[in-house]
Write a protein that binds this DNA or RNA. Structure first.
Lengths: 252, 252
DNA sequence: ATGCAGCAATGAGGCAGATCATTCTACGAA
DNA sequence: TTCGTAGAATGATCTGCCTCATTGCTGCAT
């Protein structure tokens, strides 16, 4: 969900601990200058997750906060009977650790291999207390997340399967645009079941709707984990949720 | 959604502008001492809304922030074709104005008559910059809201109509407990259509499920805008979303 | 009281999406 | 190459909730 735009950054001096970090331009630490960044970096450590590995479970004590530097995570909650809802996906640069509670509210699991910076919460908190710009940045982030999540509420509460998927594809494209190429090629690092659990659908419905989109020449599937947007305008109309469009656009 | 617990407050001296404010114990300004509170109060003004009146529309410039001091608001978003989703309800003490954008992300409308404190955003922002405790409080609030909204995502994405309503009733009861009586009497200031649009259902389904609950002796309807919880345990089981329970609890 | 207006409750039928089952495809191991 | 496996795609059927329509209730104005 975090959709902060890439910042322009001064290059780091050679030998800086964060040299070559692919996530810095999008991450909260990106607002720090050289010295402060190095200072923060020293407070934490790095961590590598293998595909499918769990970073933490729902209910675990939330003793650390993270910045994802490479790869993708999914965040989900489980109901007692096994139903699952994916609350969000994390891309490189995303921050993980906005929380009131001392417990994690969801499970975080690596989709592919992933790298993270991690910081003990106490040390991180006192660092941000000393750096008001970071504090403000985190507030902005939380506010931004909140707005995005409210949009997702509307999606889950009131939109059709086709609208949900159109919106998802465009959002995914947009997020990838902020981290590089602004093409119409969209990566889907997660599988169909993850998408389904994110959109409140079943994997079968996701499959079917994507097939419909393909048949209607809205998209082209380039393998399972990648697609190309062919008709952005129509996807946008679907995503906005105009009324009759739905019927006519897709039935054809 | 905001569920902050009531604070213990030192009484205000007679003549204080916030004397007798029913919302102070729950509101963000409640953490301020006498002087600072008076100082904040002077930055803004008060506002009274009649039932059904709109405070602002989605897309309006977000030039002010608010604290609801009396009554109830609903916050909703509209789709182009008229579908509506209620993002949340506001009770006395709730803060309205967490936002990154300079535009309101939803429409805010009074359910009954309502009173608010309102502050120009610029002045409010500089006030909180000068009061780190307020800043932290707002961050906490945003984080709390975010967590509550994520729970709502699961609700809308993965729960049945009965589970949604059981959860809604309990949540409503809980919020009222923080502002006074901890009884089993629950006020529903909003009408069935509002509840439906909040839970991603239709008003008919809300009606039907409430009737089912009544028939199953889970609740008693005391007029349209008030109900009594008769079997909290069963409601909780439903709300948690255990599997088979659903079938057996309600069919009887 | 009577009629009216606004919700809520209830009934009948339809449909979008779920569920269950099968086939297809890609890919890694033997 | 063949086999085996996992996920995706597709088909067949079912169902929970929606839609549309009617009835009932409560409060208010005449």
């Amino acid at each position: 969900m975090p959709g902060s735009l890439a910042r322009h950054l001064d290059p780091l001096p050679t030998g800086h601990a964060c040299q070559g970090c692919e996530a810095r331009s999008r991450a909260v630490c990106g607002i720090l200058d050289c010295e402060n960044l190095a200072q923060l970096k020293k407070l934490g450590s790095t961590l590598r997750l293998a595909a499918g590995q769990t970073l933490f479970h729902e209910g675990d004590p939330a003793g650390r906060v993270f910045t994802l530097t490479h790869g993708h995570l999914k965040l989900y909650k489980l109901l007692p009977d096994g139903r699952r809802h994916v609350v969000g996906f994390l891309d490189p640069g995303d921050f993980l650790g906005i929380s009131v509670d001392d417990e994690h509210a969801f499970t975080a699991e690596a989709i592919g291999d992933a790298d993270l910076c991690c910081f003990p919460r106490g040390r991180f908190d006192s660092f941000i207390s000393d750096h008001p710009s970071m504090e403000r940045e985190l507030y902005q982030l939380a506010a931004h997340e909140l707005a995005a999540t409210q949009l997702q509420l509307v999606l889950l509460g009131r939109r059709t399967a086709a609208e949900r998927l159109a919106n998802f594809i465009l959002l995914q494209a947009e997020r990838q645009a902020t981290r590089g190429s602004a093409t119409n090629i969209v990566d889907l690092p997660m599988n169909r079941a993850d998408i389904a659990d994110y959109l409140g659908l079943t994997k079968e419905t996701v499959s079917r709707v994507l097939s419909t989109f393909r048949a209607a020449r809205l998209i082209r599937l380039k393998g399972v984990y990648e697609l190309e947007i062919l008709d952005r305008r129509l996807l946008e109309q679907l995503s906005e949720g105009g009324a009759h469009e739905r019927a006519t656009l897709i039935s054809a």
